[in-house]
Design a protein around this nucleic acid. Structure first.
Length: 786
DNA sequence: AGCTGTGGCAGGGAGG
DNA sequence: CCTCCCTGCCAC
């Protein structure tokens, strides 16, 4: 077993655990051959925290005291203050000095570690340890959703408000069981006791729900407290642990609450959806209903009840509520199956339990791997570097217009490959763990990829696929970790070396394509779009050409064919569209496709691109005319022309910042304020522009989309016509000026003649390159450990 | 409270 | 009109 990837050994499986007096764990394993074996092992890893048990003042004091390589992260791991102080005192006494410096032995800390309660430690770790060797299907997962009563006129239920309470608890599991605890038949206290009883009998490994941490569990625990009931929801009747986050303004305790239930893992599908969308950025909302639809998990006869109708239903027509709640837990189960397999398999590798790994970011995962190995080596940890990274990927556009055929060649895993081949690693990583980890994870990924290809069984195949794709994300984060200002092992010079090398390699690829007679259209970071030389025709020759590119690259760097396209519309850097050989269109870039645009604009631009790539100029002219007419004739529904924005700050904060001149007025906030409704951070506001001035300032001519009345449409027609023209102007560079004017004009169709209009191709002149001494030196802020 | 990085486009508003 | 700054969203 490779110690770096401790826990990844699938040959063994822990079947039982026993605590020995001195705190050592006795773990019982069963080998793959089915034979039992026994191993006594000191429990090797603790729960790494970010020092939340230390207040800032104390932490800084220790950071200062333990200069250079420090141990504070290790010491912070102790749950209780007294235990930590004992540890510090003991270490200092043993070493007979006032402070720890470099590379002190941690032998003594092993002894101190015994001071923490091993059972608690173990239960915290069950996700990582007991689940090792298990498959996702073997987990017993229970889904939970509560419905609450809200006393009118409030919009959100509040567990502390008289009259508000839990009215239904819906449960289901992955074995086909489901149940509703009915608030009409039981008092709230009985409902909560029933929940504890069911959890104890069913004894699930995992509790799942959408916003289950932020809402359901918080609400349940608060109501239990008010009902003076202790809720043994954990294994061995352990009580849930609640960590109230310290918010500076002390509001909305829901959002900062962390909950742990010993022996069980909590999976919040809201967090999984947010994590998924933070990479993809394609979802309009992170609600359960939207996410279920987005992933195609909704059943056709599902019951929907609006949040503000729940209390009404409870009073007048309670039956549909049960169906609704059961549909919710059903969707949670499917959503979780879709998104939690990845973090589940990562718990084999990353220290931390399943619930924790599901919430961890990439940098936290890498850091925990690094720290675990340093502790295993009994070596101290470095302090984060001050400063900032100064460079990134190379991006350029060489041709604007419609071109084809197109090859997209990209360098496979550019940054990880550079780090491995050029041995770029943090300078502070004296034990050379970083690169070993990177290489080991890459090898593990390739193995999973090979296995996935080999397997026939779709379930096993998809498991390997989930494993390899989760490793890919982790591997790609190693570069980001180098430039992360809070990383213990960050190294900005190393990060810059990686991007600089990447730039060189991309330019090398561009040069070679041009040398061979290809026409480079657009490049970004690790890939090149180009029209191949004339002699390169057909897929086979294109592949051979890409192989040629690969051969001129340095050892260890591979170029692959990422895609081949009939045509490409090159617009600006990071903004383009592709026409595939099976006639599909792919649009990329914030100026061509963005959620901040009006919906009519998104479809309009998409259609224009479609017609442009298919050389149907007449259709563009027609489309433009139709849109003009629709706007002028008030034929668009409000959803088509409304803008939807997310409120990122509270209304109070917005008003205060506007009053002090720190911020401009903005339409979304003005609409929210005018509505008088209790908007909260994260709520989305849909609004449109009124009046008749095409250049109206949006913040004093805006109205909520809900107020729009199709019988008395008051949207600002000149304004929306101007928007249409602005969107049309994106296509200026694709035509001769007179052609452009003819296409995007309101003239009748019969007077428009598309013959002879051909989309242009324009080479982009090279930007004047800045000589380094001309640019002012980059200013660095003062580093503050917040 | 928790957070992987840089590069790039566009829109709104304020002020010259 | 232009420039600057800020924010949002997106590509990799």
């Amino acid at each position: 077993m490779n110690p770096l990837l401790y826990g990844h050994n699938l040959e063994e499986r822990i079947v039982a655990v026993q605590q020995i007096d001195d705190g050592t764990m006795r773990l019982h394993f069963r080998g793959k051959d089915g034979l039992s074996s026994r191993d006594e092992r000191f429990y090797p890893f603790f729960y790494l925290t970010d020092g939340r048990y230390l207040d800032d003042f104390e932490r800084k004091r220790w950071v200062k005291k333990l200069e250079g390589h420090l141990s504070y992260q290790y010491l912070c791991a102790f749950e209780e203050w007294p235990a930590m102080w004992d540890a510090v005192r003991h270490v200092l006494e043993t070493h007979n000095r006032e402070s720890l410096t470099k590379a002190d032995s941690y032998a003594d800390l092993d002894t101190l570690y015994l001071n923490t309660d091993p059972v608690t430690q173990f239960l915290m770790q069950t996700g990582r340890t007991l689940f090792k060797g298990m498959t996702f299907e073997e987990l017993h997962r229970i889904q939970l959703d509560i419905e609450t009563y809200t006393s009118p006129p409030h919009r959100f239920s509040n567990p502390s408000r008289p009259g508000d309470r839990i009215i239904l608890i819906a449960l289901s599991d992955n074995l086909g069981w489901s149940h509703v605890i009915d608030g009409k038949k039981h008092s709230e206290k009985e409902m909560l006791a029933e929940l504890a009883k069911i959890l104890s009998e069913k004894d699930p490994d995992v509790i799942e729900g959408h916003n289950v941490i932020g809402f359901d569990l918080s609400y349940i625990l608060k109501r239990a407290e008010l009902n003076e009931l202790t809720l043994p929801l954990g294994r061995g009747k352990a009580l849930p642990k609640v960590y109230e986050g310290r918010t500076p303004y002390g509001e909305i305790p829901f959002e900062t609450t962390a909950i742990e239930i010993p022996g069980r893992q909590i999976i919040d599908t809201l967090l999984l959806v947010q994590g998924y969308d933070s990479v993809k950025r394609a979802m309009e909302s992170h609600s359960l209903k939207y996410a279920a639809k987005y992933f195609g998990l909704t059943s056709p006869d599902r019951t929907y009840i609006e949040g503000d109708k729940i209390s009404w239903h409870w009073d007048h027509d309670p039956e549909p509520l049960k169906a609704y709640a059961l549909d919710d837990v059903n969707e949670v189960r499917l959503l979780s199956e879709h998104l939690s397999e990845t973090p589940f398999y990562l718990t084999r590798i990353v220290p931390g339990n399943y619930g924790h790994v599901a919430r961890m970011g990439s940098a936290a995962k890498i850091e925990s791997l690094m720290v675990r190995e340093y502790i295993r080596l009994k070596h101290s940890l470095p302090h984060p570097q001050e400063g900032a990274q100064t460079s990134g990927g190379y991006t350029n556009v060489f041709q604007v217009g419609v071109l084809g055929p197109i090859i997209h060649a990209d360098i496979e895993s550019l940054y990880p490959s550079i780090m491995v081949t050029k041995e770029i690693a943090p300078a502070s990583d004296t034990n050379k763990v970083f690169l070993s980890l990177l290489k080991e994870l890459t090898a593990t990924r390739l193995e999973a990829k090979r296995t996935a290809r080999r397997l026939k069984d779709p379930v096993k195949k998809s498991r390997q696929e989930a494993m390899q794709s989760s490793l890919k994300i982790l591997i790609n984060s190693f570069y980001g970790y180098l430039g992360y200002n809070r990383a213990l092992f960050n190294d900005y010079k190393a990060a810059d070396a990686v991007t600089q090398t990447g730039q060189q390699m991309l330019k090398q690829m561009i040069d070679h394509v041009e040398k061979r007679g290809g026409k480079v259209v657009e490049v970004d970071t690790d890939g090149v779009f180009f029209v191949p030389p004339e002699d390169v025709e057909g897929e086979e020759r294109e592949l051979a050409f890409v192989q040629e590119l690969s051969d001129v690259m340095p050892e260890g760097i591979t170029v692959a064919l990422d895609g081949r396209y009939r045509k490409m519309m090159s617009y600006k850097k990071k903004n383009y569209a592709l026409l595939t050989y099976d006639e599909r269109i792919r649009v990329k870039g914030s100026s061509l496709i963005s959620r901040s645009m009006e919906r009519f604009a998104r479809t309009y631009i998409h259609s224009c691109i479609d017609y442009l790539l298919n050389n149907d100029i007449e259709a563009i002219h027609k489309l433009y005319g139709e849109h003009r007419e629709a706007i002028q004739g008030h034929k668009l529904a409000v959803a088509e022309f409304a803008r939807v924005e997310t409120l990122r700050d509270s209304l109070e904060q917005y008003e205060q910042q506007v009053a002090t001149g720190k911020r401009n007025r903005s339409a979304a906030y003005e609409v929210a304020l005018a509505s008088g409704k209790p908007y909260r951070v994260g709520d989305r506001v849909a609004y449109y522009i009124t009046g008749s001035d095409p250049n109206a300032r949006s913040f004093d001519n805006c109205k909520s989309a809900e107020e729009w009345d199709p019988n008395f449409p008051d949207e600002n027609v000149p304004y929306y016509l101007r928007r249409l023209d602005e969107y049309s102007e994106k296509f200026t560079d694709f035509f001769q000026p007179q052609d452009f004017r003819a296409i995007f004009s309101a003239e009748e169709l019969f007077s428009f003649d598309p013959r002879g209009i051909v989309p242009l191709v324009t080479p982009v002149p090279a930007e004047p390159s800045e000589s380094p001494q001309d640019s002012p030196p980059r200013q660095f802020g003062i580093w503050i450990d917040a």
